[in-house]
Amino acid sequence: MSEIVKVSIDGIPVEVAPGTTILNAARQIGGDVVPPAMCYYSKLEGSGGKCRTCLVKVSKGSEKDPRPMPKLVASCRTTVMDGMEVQNITSPEVIEARKGIVEMLLINHPLDCPVCDQAGECSLQDLAYEHGAAKTRYEFERRKFERVDIGDKIQLHMTRCILCYRCVFVADQITDHRIHGILNRGDHSEISTYIHQAVDNDFSGNVIDVCPVGALTDKTFRFKNRVWFTKPVEAHRDCDKCCGKVTLWYKGEDVLRVTGRKDAYGEVEEFICNTCRFEQKKTADWVIEGPRNVSNDSVISSNHYGSLNLPPVVKKNLALQESNKEQLERFTRL
């Protein structure tokens, strides 16, 4: 097999290493052709394939075998072949299937975003905003669970869970003995720890970061603030357990919470330890690096950093641009 595999995704050619998945090839292109992923997490071995939001159509299998694949495939678990042609947003079939899956994910979701701590940085919220219907067709009672504390710092609210299994993989891959998993099956399956044991590990807090929805929340941050009112700042400290590189979320002078640094796909760059996450909540504990760059699309960036989006009226009117000159320059500098 050659060193480089050529594939095209929505007609955009890209060269990747053999063994890359379609999703990762699409991420190398970036932009709109990247399929959404709710369960895949590149740092977790064995994750992916479950939520089915990343389904794509393979219209040409490979150079050797040009037959299309009979079904839509999960792009996070399908490796590319040389000459493969993939359709994501150019295929109406894929868009239709994705809409269906978003609807399925939402039928048992409580939609309690107004009181959910994850709101504003929730993958399901973004996904539903992009692909979901305005109104549900589900007319039955949604499933409900009691809230459970997993350890003294993490709360599990199973009602919101979309069963992506990411936290199961985190717990499996960081602890020696398995205590965190799925109980029951079908739509009453439930993430749980075996007989209410606590997940007791220095890195257990990462289940909060990997959770794409608000099912696992930080008890030290619960109901403290909305994420878009807090200001993310990059900071680091010398930590003997982890890399110590984190994002601090400020409200005024106070650090309200500490998380890992999440990239454009909501994945943390490096896992951080519980000491950094839960104990170190004073500015004096950290070396501040600077403001975190938050994507323009995110609600968190509103009123904070990034470039100033000029109101259309200012763009047209030179006089208005002149009068706002000082402010404009400040944003250009930032």
Binding site: R52, L163, Y165, R185, D187
Partner: peptide, 21 residues
């Protein structure tokens, strides 16, 4: 099928219950 769905992937987990109801 609602009872026997393993609950791993979303369309089957949620859809079978919906159809049953």
């Amino acid at each position: 099928y609602h009872h026997e769905s393993c609950g791993q992937c979303s369309p089957c987990r949620e859809g079978t219950g919906w159809m049953e109801k």
